[in-house]
Lab assay of single mutants.
Amino acid sequence: MATGGRRGAAAAPLLVAVAALLLGAAGHLYPGEVCPGMDIRNNLTRLHELENCSVIEGHLQILLMFKTRPEDFRDLSFPKLIMITDYLLLFRVYGLESLKDLFPNLTVIRGSRLFFNYALVIFEMVHLKELGLYNLMNITRGSVRIEKNNELCYLATIDWSRILDSVEDNYIVLNKDDNEECGDICPGTAKGKTNCPATVINGQFVERCWTHSHCQKVCPTICKSHGCTAEGLCCHSECLGNCSQPDDPTKCVACRNFYLDGRCVETCPPPYYHFQDWRCVNFSFCQDLHHKCKNSRRQGCHQYVIHNNKCIPECPSGYTMNSSNLLCTPCLGPCPKVCHLLEGEKTIDSVTSAQELRGCTVINGSLIINIRGGNNLAAELEANLGLIEEISGYLKIRRSYALVSLSFFRKLRLIRGETLEIGNYSFYALDNQNLRQLWDWSKHNLTITQGKLFFHYNPKLCLSEIHKMEEVSGTKGRQERNDIALKTNGDQASCENELLKFSYIRTSFDKI
């Protein structure tokens, strides 16, 4: 039985969820670079991206490699990797027998973001014989899940209580170790020597080791999670996991709180800001991140802002960003909400898709409305799209047979046209069989910064309504002859009103 693990408890099935942008060198404390989270699957090609990484700022997932063999891993080693800020997950990587050479110096898994409450997941690794993470000293947050690894031993010899604050939620089941077939031998045991430290858990006094050649490092209890030197002297209180010299914040392997210019500090002093819960960055760093993602459509890219001495992905609820200094300031009234469309555009074809934009005031991208039916549609669209004030790209209304009016965009005031449909149009209306009105132009103002209007096959939309939009939106004169079809717009509506004058002759039985 794995020490510190839980057996036999019912657990939810383990679901495996399925960018080499360097964020800056980590400095003297770390020998390499800070790398983003990685999802490495199918083959070993991307694994080489770990070569210079000291910190993975995010998670590391290595999974679904069915053609790899043990010899493929023999020359692979990433000794610079010290810390993973989120979680480490391995799933069905064939041929991998140990992690001792792959990650010989991995010391800390912070667990800032977890995989279903777990910071370390080893699942269905069919050839893994031992973990071998002999320098792993601290899992700051989260638990361990090690399950269905039929060859995995050296679990009962690990004292997880020396690595985690609590072992109650560890789930370590259905491994070879369960069948008591392992016969784990710690260093020196074969020669009758006791080389590794022994600890007591559940009444068992057991030597602690990761492999037959690597003991588990056990520091004096007084050192807590700070770690200790090879001689057993406690590291500085700002260290986490390990250090090369005692009581020196510049000799830590990793930091308990924050890293700044080669030393570990309790908090980031001005003019620095907390970033990702582990390091200090200056304003320029946060500003660069903001600008890199301002026009990016890459998933996970955030326009970072500053709030409460932190550089964070977005302002919290009730705050909006001051564009001059990136500071989050309290909103006066309802907060603006910028919604970034991942692929640059979004099609609204149902109430469900409209709900995804609920509360958005600025759309960074283009909207395509293609709704053919739905219950209580006008009210639903207004509830979900009615706060949109600005669209950076274009607005396209296409084959939306259920629409009679666009009044559900009740606050839309600006279409920038930074991206144009077919390279020309910022407003595009095609084949809307029941569209009769755009907006009530006596109450609604709309500016279209650039781009043209396109109207074709809107049989109940009168040309007068379209011409009014040209005047109000500032697009009059931009359109070419064929942009607004004269014969297919309003051709099934009563669009022309003329005053009919009647004269009559009164007659009676005795007068003409």
Rank of each mutant, 00 (worst) to 15 (best):
R162H: 08
H290G: 10
W210Y: 04
G183S: 06
L327G: 04
L50I: 10
L81S: 00
A156D: 01
E181A: 10
R263Y: 13
F91V: 07
R298L: 13
P79L: 05
L76F: 10
R41T: 15
W160C: 01
D277R: 07
S284F: 09
C301L: 05
H226P: 12
P197V: 10
H226V: 10
R145S: 08
T250G: 12
N325Y: 09
E130L: 06
A190T: 11
N52G: 09
L47S: 15
S112F: 08
H214V: 13
T211Q: 02
K217C: 12
P334V: 02
K310Q: 07
F258P: 01
F285P: 01
V305R: 11
D86Q: 14
T329M: 11
C153H: 02
I139T: 01
F205G: 13
L164G: 13
G300Q: 08
L102R: 01
N105P: 00
Q303K: 03
D184L: 05
M65T: 03
S98L: 00
L88N: 01
K251V: 05
C293S: 04
W160R: 15
E238A: 13
C223K: 01
C209G: 07
V200G: 14
D248C: 01
D101G: 09
F115K: 03
D72H: 02
Q299G: 14
C255W: 00
K191D: 03
C239K: 00
F283K: 15
E49L: 07
E57G: 06
C235R: 00
K193G: 08
Y259H: 10
P70W: 09
K310H: 07
H226L: 09
G111L: 01
V55R: 01
L99R: 00
T329C: 07
N322R: 13
H302Y: 12
G192H: 08
T68G: 04
P269Y: 06
N52P: 14
K310W: 14
F205D: 15
A156P: 08
M83H: 07
P249Q: 11
E51I: 06
L96N: 02
K129S: 10
L120N: 00
N322L: 13
L128I: 09
D248Q: 08
L327Y: 15
T320L: 06
N309V: 05
I82C: 04
I158F: 04
G227T: 02
E207Q: 08
L96V: 10
S284D: 15
I146M: 06
R145A: 08
I122Y: 00
H274L: 04
G333W: 15
F285V: 06
G300A: 07
E71W: 05
G32R: 09
N138M: 14
C234F: 01
I62W: 02
G232D: 15
Y134F: 05
S77Q: 14
T199R: 07
V218D: 05
P187I: 07
M137E: 04
I122V: 08
C293Q: 01
K148S: 15
G318E: 08
V93R: 00
R113G: 10
T320E: 13
V200I: 13
P246R: 12
M137W: 13
F275E: 08
P104C: 01
S296H: 10
K310N: 05
Q245F: 13
V200F: 14
E168I: 12
C219V: 03
L260M: 03
T250Y: 09
I139S: 01
L233H: 10
Q299R: 09
L131Y: 00
L152F: 01
W160E: 00
M83S: 10
R110L: 09
V167R: 12
V305E: 04
L60C: 04
D277K: 15
P334T: 14
D178P: 03
G132D: 03
S166L: 10
Y259P: 01
E130S: 08
G132V: 01
C153W: 04
E180W: 07
Y304K: 02
L64A: 02
N175S: 05
P336C: 02
Y30P: 03
E51V: 05
L102Y: 04
P336E: 11
G192W: 12
G262Y: 02
L50Q: 01
L327V: 03
R69W: 09
I122L: 11
K292W: 12
G183Q: 07
D247L: 09
G58K: 00
P336Y: 11
I40K: 00
T199S: 06
F283L: 07
G300S: 09
T229R: 08
C209E: 02
G203H: 07
F73L: 09
C228F: 02
C315R: 07
R92L: 13
L50E: 00
P197M: 11
A156Q: 11
L131F: 05
R41F: 14
H307T: 03
E151K: 09
